[in-house]
């Protein structure tokens, strides 16, 4: 198989996994958070038991898959991108933002959500702090996703936007 065909499969995988990841991120921020604020205590318990863990499962593994497909797609230019060299600075900024977002998912959101959901024992006060931390990390990722998507798209479709 030619290199360009392999790259296409990596790009396809990157887009598929990325849609699952960012789609769920927007679902959490625009739908689930307001829903959980409005729903009864009983509904919240049910959601924490059957809905949120499922969504978080797809969310965190899709985040990892997106990053791995992206890294594979960068291939030999991985270093150029992360060092923001020349025109690789455009995709490199997208890659940096995506990497920070991945670290947020696995390093902040998931460990804190495990306590909120009761998968890891925590007191009621700890759960409150963890919920706030996970919320802010999730909101931060929503902020970062906006420039991240511009730089991802611009790397192949909008190079003329940048002064070259």
């Amino acid at each position: 198989m030619e290199g360009s065909t392999i790259a296409l499969f990596f790009r396809w995988g990157h887009l598929l996994a990325g849609i699952v990841w960012i789609g769920l991120l927007y679902y959490f921020n625009f739908v689930q958070v307001p829903f959980l604020k409005a729903v009864s205590a009983e509904g919240k318990t049910e959601a924490f038991k059957h809905l949120v863990p499922r969504a978080l499962n797809w969310f965190r593994w899709a985040a990892l898959a997106t990053w791995l497909f992206g890294a594979a797609l960068l291939g030999a230019h991985f270093g150029d991108a992360f060092m923001l060299k020349g025109q690789y600075a455009i995709i490199g900024m997208g890659a940096w933002l995506g990497t920070i977002m991945l670290l947020n998912v696995w390093g902040i959101i998931w460990p804190n959500q495990k306590r909120v959901l009761g998968l890891v024992p925590a007191s009621a006060d700890e759960k409150k702090i963890c919920a706030r931390r996970a919320f802010l990390a999730s909101r931060t990722n929503t902020v970062l996703s906006i420039p991240m998507l511009l730089f991802m798209a611009a790397s192949t479709h909008g190079i003329a936007l940048f002064n070259q």
Partner: peptide, 30 residues
């Protein structure tokens, strides 16, 4: 002062402001 991340629109606007800042940074770099 309220945290803009507490509101959906505050979050979205922050994203666009950050986009403008990072665009200027990368534009100066390439």
């Amino acid at each position: 002062m309220t945290n803009p991340l507490d509101s959906i629109w505050g979050t979205i606007i922050s994203g666009f402001v950050l986009t403008a800042v990072l665009y200027a940074f990368i534009d100066a770099l390439v």
